[in-house]
Design a protein around this nucleic acid. Structure first.
Lengths: 161, 161
DNA sequence: GCAATTTAATTCATACATGAAATATTATCA
DNA sequence: TGATAATATTTCATGTATGAATTAAATTGC
């Protein structure tokens, strides 16, 4: 029987434990939690890539892109709205729908934090070669039951939305 | 800039999202949460591997082995005690110390669940070859900045902080 | 020998995760 | 057309994570 600490979940959790503190410290320095950053990043990306297609940033889309459940998202967005980072806009066409929009403050914040996030990423990137990163990514998705070339759920939703 | 979804954290979270539901469903079927299972497993292992060395199962040890912070562990252990799975025993030598002991009920539970956990693991194991698993493990620890025989993050955090 | 520090466990406040269920709205089809 | 199903979001209850502070006991320095 595989020792507990060599199990796939524990190896994954350990890897996360190793890389996340640096990111979280950065986010905390900007009064953001990690989930809040993920939401901000996705909402910001949606605005940037499709400036006129506000419909991209529905809670469902953000939920899928961030791997944050819809229920969790409610509270996260609540707090971000309270902090003046997001606004909720209910659709007139389909009043079940809500659009999440970044405020100017949020956009500025994203543009401040993104380079620093990338700096951390670049630092971590040095630990492996290009080829190794590629192998790791492929093995991770394979271990997760997703064939390398197969589209992920998030991707499908993305292209669909 | 690396797309958000191809970042190491998101790849790790996706892999966890892919493998954990099966485990969590099993744990839930036995009225356990995932952290509770981790604690149970470690406490049970300590008992099993060193039957007379009760001192192995201190909260600190469990915290390090499970990657659960000491504060979180308090509540988790509280609930497990309430469910009759653990008993807390305070040391007479050093009254700051507590030993966590599995009840007979907990031991029976562990022996019921462990084979099922291993069945899930075996199922997942088929997705990669032996060599690939080894590569994945090596790359994960390398990506985490930990050389194979180096101490874990939790330990480092402690000694560093 | 005792003040200062360290250590182990815990508490507290805030934030997040999860399954189940509720709410409101729109789509389906017999 | 009107009951029913599906969809998007939210609420609720319970459990967990995290940083900061607390308590109690043990160790160290002087």
């Amino acid at each position: 029987m595989v020792p507990f600490k060599n199990s796939l979940p524990m190896q994954l959790y350990r890897a996360l434990d190793a890389v996340m503190p640096a990111y979280r410290a950065l986010f905390a320095a900007h009064n953001l939690t990690e989930p809040q950053w993920r939401v901000l990043r996705v909402v910001w990306e949606c605005q940037k890539t499709t400036p006129h297609m506000v419909s991209g940033a529905t809670p469902l889309h953000v939920s899928e892109a961030t791997l944050i459940s819809a229920q969790s998202l409610v509270g996260i967005v609540d707090r971000m709205v309270a902090k003046g980072l997001l606004t909720r806009l209910r659709s007139v066409d389909d009043r079940r729908m809500v659009y999440l929009l970044p405020t100017p403050k949020a956009r500025a914040l994203a543009e401040t934090v993104l380079p620093k996030v990338d700096a951390i990423r670049a630092d971590i990137a040095d630990r492996l070669t290009e080829a190794e990163w590629e192998t790791l990514g492929a093995l991770l998705s394979k271990a997760g039951g997703t064939k390398p070339n197969e589209k992920t759920q998030v991707e499908n939703e993305r292209t669909a939305g």
